[in-house]
Design a protein around this nucleic acid. Structure first.
Length: 965
RNA sequence: GCCCGGGUGGUGAAAUGGUAGACACGAGGGACUUAAAAUCCCUUGGUCCGCAAGGGCCGUGUGGGUUCGAGUCCCACCCCGGGCACCA
């Protein structure tokens, strides 16, 4: 983008034409090796138990129509370097790539254009593949997976079926076949106490029954019970319904009350819905984090998402009714401070409890609260609203009547959807009580409840009967004890985590392998998988709101039974985007397997992912489901490990620099006339920001401008009804760092960079930009440095007229020092994924070897191997020129030898009170005592001491001397 | 509000508690060249003193602290990025 692109290109082409000594021809070299590697199958990986393995995985991309921009490959380059490095170190490295190819954009495009998403996805994948190939990754493409490929999603469906036929045995702490549960029912029935031991679904409304009753149940009755236990189940659930997309969205697909993709409004609706019981795994998902080498921020995000809180379930019997209001509280110690109960507006008991005289008011409030969007509720945090139901519950300890209110500060989706209000101890309850004039009781010593609630967790209880004088933690334990004695409650751990909605009213996803027989869900037999996506005439929901699959002809499953041939309707919803990505890492291990998702041998060999690289935006979505499915497959004996990835690295985002101008638009002539304003006119009314295409911008002295030529080019590219003019001959533009996106005109395409500088330069530059985990703006200006570096590296091997001049002379001491210092630094840096500093070290090495005029094989050969993971094309070319016939990728990593780095002497910085004043050189071997003596004897030191004796002298060998005066 | 990151030259950045600013971009100067490109050399945190060689002072968001010594450790605060949020 920098200087006017046209000018640079011209110079570059002409220099190529007239010079002979600059012969690093990246285009030829890279093309040659791309073909050669393909021909030789250099990157093919075999499952070879004789060799140690290393599994490096990238989060696979969704192949969008826009193609790759320079931000996408950042993580892939990093993982590619590690893969190649580990290969040099003797590991058998699995480094695969594939496509997360089901998704909403393809479907939206299909709806707009009528084209089959399978076809457009195929086209996008071809383009991605081409772009990825240009960068020179060492992916084994024979192992490619695509989530939308029936051969792949057959196994996604298979895992779903296993989930359906499994339940979570809380007592054993693992998932088991549903048959073990049925066995228990047949033997013991299902009683109240079993509930806590047998299922994660503690709030289930399933009735208790005896073994005899179970045996007498109809199939429908049995299935209704089992649905409370299956890990894949159908239930009525509150869902995020998006009318514009005609589909249900997961919580993390909704941002600010609109769909993340497309930005359409979303409303809360209760629908029958396939769900996965991830909540059964809440504790294990939490505990497992401790052993993972993942960034603290991701682990924290998952902990927050799971949201474990310890407390108690308290039962408040409704006065004059059989109903009981159950609340969850983390502070059962404050029970004596309860002055009212608040239900969420959506709570099922609201309708049952409200008294006749209050019904109108309460229902009006409920209707209003339900209609308020999430967004409104968020924007309006300060407003207190609620209504009294007229009903009362009995306090479990005092037996007093406690009024029941409804308030929208209580969320139906969290815990029981009801709170015991302790205005003396909880600020939100205090606000509510103050607003409605309800009593506030102080239950902690030293609380001033006239101003605010006392939420201290180290307080001492008061006004609290048998809890008086106890500190909060002891009081909590004591209160729970008492609740359990009275049968009015129990200790309870609550999780914020919800079960995952698994059905989508969409076309472009895996069909759920279920049919319905007399209304009962049945899974397809394994041999009938995959259940392939049917052809449809339109990709929209049907006129009566059925999902698109309902449009398919004969969307039924044929069963030949004793009563003859029967066609049963198939499920019409499809799986969400995260289904395939929850297990794809296993398929790479054995992608062609027709019998299993992967053979036990392949799984035993490749085991867990050793290094997983991807964006942090998947912190609570993909990465949680990924862990959940792995734990499930482990429980059921299909995997020997229960965490998918040992180490996770989140690469930062590469942002774009947008060129922002203030613009006014004049439509008076029927033509849109955009006028770009110079700085002094930015205040003009009606002026708005507009980004300019970066290659129409000129760069001078660190500032960006658009001139008449740029305006003319913009004009040429724009729609015919739009004109661009400048309000001054040259207008300065403001660079703004933003997400790279087509609409912001700030996308940099890797293909363009590769065309001009080569893939090796691109790879080096992306690594050189800064630490891998950090987000940073892309600025093509700096790329010259890495390009220059590669040319200097090339020139170490070549003399005038591009003659290959490497010789077999013995290396000198300084040459060996440069080499081994570089090998040491680079080896250590790759291990800790510090690629930017590795590149810097290579630059130092090349600069120093250049000064030393070193063209010796014994130095350059190991250096070439070390550079190969970063810049594989040039390294392979030079390797061949060095006379090697095997690919450089098979060369063993050159070990560094510390002996070349040993110095005889060290130049000590001599500091006074920590401030460096002079340098004195001493032999390394000299003991600290002698160093001190010699330093103090030095005339300059003496002069600085002005005859005074130093208070103290600190000598740190090979580091520093500090004189305290 | 809570939880994670992070604040270092004009810019991207580097620095096991031990010489802050490696490496690179940009900028300035010079060599080569008819000219340009490419290449090479020098300067480049701020400021002050000096003709110069050289030297002084300040400097890693702010204010304290620990230490012989702090970008790094501790406390408080400010700002930026990300995540979560009437979470009971």
């Amino acid at each position: 983008m920098a200087r006017s692109a046209g000018t640079v290109t011209w110079h570059w082409l002409t220099s190529r034409a007239f010079t002979t000594d600059m012969a690093y021809e990246h285009k030829e070299i890279e093309k040659k090796w791309r073909e050669e590697w393909r021909k030789r199958g250099t990157y093919r990986v075999a499952n070879d138990p004789a060799r140690p393995k290393y599994y490096v995985l990238d989060m696979f991309p969704y192949p969008s129509g826009a193609g790759l921009h320079v931000g996408h490959p950042l993580g892939y380059i990093a993982s590619d370097i590690v893969s190649r490095y580990k290969r040099h170190k003797g590991f058998n490295v699995l480094h695969p790539m594939g496509y997360d190819s089901f998704g909403l954009p393809a479907e939206q495009y299909a709806i707009q254009t009528g084209q089959d998403p399978a076809k457009t996805t195929e086209v996008n994948i071809m383009r991605y593949r081409e772009q990825l190939d240009n960068i020179g990754f060492c992916f084994d493409w024979d192992r490619e997976v695509r989530t939308s490929d029936p051969a792949f999603y057959k196994w996604t469906q298979w895992i779903f079926i296993q989930l359906f036929h499994s339940w979570y045995n809380a007592e054993a702490g693992r998932a088991e076949p549903i048959t073990t549960l049925i066995g228990r029912f047949e033997a013991f029935g299902f009683s109240g106490i079993d509930r806590r031991k047998l299922t994660g679904d503690e709030d289930m409304e399933a009735p208790t029954f005896t073994a005899e009753e179970w045996k007498g149940f109809s199939e429908t009755q049995r299935e209704a019970v089992l649905q409370h236990f299956r890990l894949a189940y159908r239930s009525e659930a509150w869902v995020n319904w998006c009318p514009a997309l005609g589909t249900v969205l997961a919580n993390d697909e909704v941002k600010d009350g609109v769909s993340e993709r497309g930005g359409h409004p979303v409303e809360r609706k209760r629908m029958p819905q396939w769900s996965l019981r991830i909540t059964a795994y809440a504790q294990r998902l939490l505990d497992g984090l401790d052993q993972l080498d993942w960034s603290e921020s991701i682990k924290e995000a998952q902990r927050n998402w799971i949201g474990r809180s310890e407390g108690a379930l308290v039962k408040f019997p409704v006065v004059g009714s059989d109903e009981v209001v159950e609340v969850f509280t983390t502070r059962p110690d404050t029970l004596f401070g309860v002055t009212f109960i608040t239900l969420a507006p959506e709570h099922v008991l609201v309708d049952k409890l409200v008294t006749a005289e209050r019904r109108a008011e309460v229902m009006a409030y409920v209707a209003e609260a339900k209609n308020r969007s999430e967004r409104e509720r968020q924007a309006d945090v300060k407003r207190v609203s609620g209504a009294f139901t007229g009903a009362y519950v009995k306090h479990p300890f005092t037996g007093q009547d406690v009024p029941v209110w409804v308030g929208d500060y209580v969320l139906v989706g969290y815990a029981t959807g009801a709170v015991m209000a302790v205005p003396g101890g909880d600020q939100r309850d205090w606000n509510f009580a103050t607003h409605f004039g309800l009593p506030i009781i102080a239950v902690t010593e030293g609380a001033d409840i006239t101003k605010e609630a006392d939420e201290r967790k180290d307080a001492t209880l008061t006004n609290s009967g048998f809890l008086d004088g106890l500190k909060v933690p002891q009081a909590i334990t004591r209160a729970i004890q008492e609740l359990e004695n009275l049968g009015r409650g129990e200790g309870r751990i609550n999780y914020r985590l919800r079960d995952a909605a698994f059905g989508r009213q969409r076309y472009w996803g895996e069909p759920i392998p279920v049919y319905y027989e007399n209304g009962l869900p049945r899974t397809l037999p394994e041999e009938r998988l995959p259940l392939e996506l049917p052809a449809v005439d339109k990709f929209l929901p049907t006129e009566d709101g059925e999902p698109p699959l309902a449009r398919a002809k004969d969307w039924t499953f044929r069963v030949v039974g004793p009563s003859g041939v029967e066609d049963h309707p198939l499920e019409t919803t499809t799986m969400p985007g995260w289904a395939g990505s929850s297990w794809y890492f296993l398929r790479y291990m054995d992608p062609g397997n027709m019998e299993r998702f992967a053979s036990p041998e392949a799984i035993d060999y490749w085991h867990q992912v050793d290094l997983y690289v991807g964006g942090s935006e998947h912190a609570t979505g993909h990465l949680l489901y990924f862990r959940f499915w792995t734990k499930f497959l482990f429980d059921r004996g299909w995997l020997p490990f229960d965490e998918p990835a040992k180490k996770l690295v989140n690469q930062g985002m590469i942002q774009g620099i947008s060129m922002m101008a203030k613009v006014t638009v004049d439509r008076s002539s029927g033509m849109e006339r955009y006028l770009v304003l110079p700085k002094e006119k930015h205040g003009t009314s009606g002026a708005f920001d507009r980004n300019y295409l970066i290659d129409h911008v000129t760069f001078k002295d660190g500032r960006y401008y658009i001139d008449e030529e740029g305006a003319a080019r913009t004009r040429a590219k724009e729609a015919t009804f739009r004109e661009f003019h400048l309000d001054a001959p040259v207008v300065e533009l403001t660079p703004v760092v933003e997400k790279m996106s087509k609409s912001k005109f700030n996308v940099v395409n890797p293909d363009d960079i590769i065309e001009r500088y080569g893939a090796d330069t691109l790879r080096l530059y992306e690594m050189f930009l800064g630490p891998i985990e950090q987000s940073k703006p892309w600025d093509t200006n700096g790329i010259e440095g890495t390009y220059r570096f590669l040319r200097k590296f090339w020139n170490l091997f070549h003399g005038a007229e591009d003659a290959f001049t490497v010789n077999d002379e013995a290396p000198t001491k300084p040459e060996l020092k440069v080499l081994h210092a570089t090998l040491k630094k680079v080896s250590e840096d790759i291990e800790r994924l510090s690629f930017n500093t590795s590149v810097a070290q290579f630059m130092i090495a090349v600069n120093e070897l250049g000064s030393l005029k070193c063209n010796k094989r014994s130095v350059l050969e190991p250096l070439t191997i070390a550079l190969a993971p970063f810049a594989p094309h040039i390294a392979e070319e030079l390797w061949q020129k060095l006379g090697q016939t095997d690919s450089i990728t098979t060369a063993p990593w050159p070990a560094y030898d510390e002996s070349h780095l040993v110095e005889d002497s060290f130049s000590y910085p001599i500091s006074f009170n920590g401030k460096t004043r002079l340098q004195l050189e001493f032999p390394i071997a000299l003991d600290p005592k002698s160093v001190e003596e010699q330093v103090l004897a030095n005339p300059e030191v003496q002069a600085r001491l002005e005859g005074k004796a130093p208070k103290k002298v600190i000598v740190v060998p090979k580091r520093i001397v500090n004189i305290v005066v």
